[in-house]
Design a protein around this nucleic acid. Structure first.
Length: 430
DNA sequence: CTGGGGAAGGGGCCC
DNA sequence: AGGGCCCCTTCCCCA
């Protein structure tokens, strides 16, 4: 007589031990398992709806939710922490309350916990994701990220092949155009998905409080070949791959729920400090405006193109700095000898669209120019020497920056700022 | 291979 | 809330 184990291996029948007096034929299949899980979940959901055996009360936005602590414990890192700290043996129902998200959002999440169906729409995905982050529900975060990616119409061929193939998430845009999203999740699929997204979620697992108390190191980032930055979340569903401009930070910002703030550390007077959490990573900021700025590193939006070299920047100040350094030679430092110079004792050398300063001595040494300032132009083809009027030359827009009513001219520099719609085309990198 | 410098990108915070 | 400045970190290039 043989028994078939769950993994398919066969083993001989053994004498019943104390533990299992009855010989049990463990015969199982994926369908059977899924069916069993489904039935069990349905039963629990029915109990929840009938408020049977509910031993946990959650107050969200003035609305009372009843649930089973076992279910919450198994679904949410936050509840795991909460319930494991409380008196497990207490007959009193466990209580929790949240202000960081709305009751509708919690209802969506609770429905998912009890059904495996996550009702996401463009109107609620950000808040659901934020709440899931708060509740440390990695799978929900993963589905939200996937939904956002879908909404952004990201070119996911590569990502899909590389990262999402194992993920069995079904999303259906309903015919009525409601843009509803459902993730049918089995335990196995959830596990797979979680593995796929594990890297990106590790930091999420840390939870809100830790994220607040231990902000990410300054300036840390990763860079890809085309985009030189990708903040810390390293999400496999790389929003950076969103073709620039499919979703602007402004739009994303506008979709943020009224409350995305999380209660962080407490002030000395015990008043909580509210910080705004990025829905895509663990970063929190004090001001919503800073979050808006931060969101650009996720959307890939680069609204400030350099008119001289087409390089694009996320911030005006970066563009300005780039322009002054690269195209205007504003730095009064000799590029060769690194000595500080003045506009009087240095000249600007043009190399393509780049400009830099050389002191008189280095100029003579390099043989690029005669001492009287005339351009020899012969030693190194392609190098043009700027003369005293170089600043004037800049003003005359030698960098392809024509006067345009649509362009906002920056009064302080020669740089003409043009905020443009991002396009899919990559700038000609310099 | 390594170290230094430049350029770029991001966060905090002041105005 | 936006602009701007400062600072820090990372990456790339070059000697």
């Amino acid at each position: 007589m043989e028994m078939v184990c769950e993994n398919g291996a066969r083993r001989p029948y053994r004498t019943p031990s104390e533990a299992d007096r009855q010989p049990v034929h463990r015969w199982t299949s994926a369908d059977m398992s899924a069916n069993h899980h489904s039935c069990l979940l349905k039963q629990l959901d029915q109990q929840r709806r009938q408020e049977l055996f509910c031993d946990c009360i959650v107050l969200v936005g003035g609305r009372l939710f009843r649930a089973h602590r076992n279910v919450l414990f198994g679904s949410s890192g936050y509840f795991r922490m909460l319930l494991s700290q409380g008196a497990q043996d207490s007959l009193e129902p466990a209580r929790a309350s949240f202000d960081a998200f709305s009751s509708d959002t919690f209802a969506t999440i609770l429905d998912f916990v009890y059904s495996g169906h996550l009702a996401l729409g463009s109107s609620n995905v950000i808040e659901v994701m934020s709440a899931a982050s708060y509740l440390q529900m990695d799978n929900v975060i993963a589905y939200c990220k996937a939904f956002i990616e879908s909404s952004l119409e990201i070119s996911t061929k590569e990502a899909t092949e590389d990262a999402l193939r194992p993920q069995s998430v079904l999303w259906e845009h309903q015919d009525d155009g409601k843009d509803e999203y459902e993730a049918e999740v089995t335990n196995e699929q959830s596990s797979q998905c979680q593995q796929v997204l594990e890297t990106g979620l590790k930091e999420e697992q840390v939870g809100q409080y830790e994220a607040v108390s231990e902000p990410r190191r300054k300036g840390t980032r990763k860079r890809s070949a085309t985009h030189r930055y990708t903040p810390d979340d390293s999400s496999p569903i790389d929003l950076q791959r969103a073709t620039a401009g499919t979703q602007k930070a402004d739009e994303l910002y506008a979709t943020l729920p009224t409350i995305v703030g999380v209660v962080g550390v407490f002030n000395k007077d015990s008043t909580p400090t509210v910080r705004f959490k990025c829905p895509f990573c663990t970063h929190t900021v004090k001001r919503k405006a800073d979050l808006k700025r931060h969101l650009r590193c996720h959307t890939g939006e680069r609204p400030y193109p350099c008119q001289a070299c087409s390089k694009r920047f996320t911030r005006l100040e970066h563009l300005r700095s780039h322009f002054e350094t690269i195209h205007q030679a504003r730095k009064l430092v000799c590029r060769k000898c690194k000595r500080h110079v003045t506009e009087q004792n240095s000249r600007v050398v043009c190399e393509g669209s780049r400009r830099y300063r050389l002191c008189e001595a280095c100029l003579q040494e390099s043989g690029l120019v005669a001492h009287d300032g005339t351009d020899t132009g012969t030693e190194e083809p392609g190098l043009l020497l700027g003369v005293e009027e170089e600043l004037e030359g800049n003003r005359n827009s030698s960098w392809g920056m024509e006067d345009d009513d649509d362009l906002a001219e920056d009064s302080g520099t020669d740089l003409i700022i043009q905020e443009v719609e991002d396009s899919d085309e990559e700038p000609s990198a310099n």
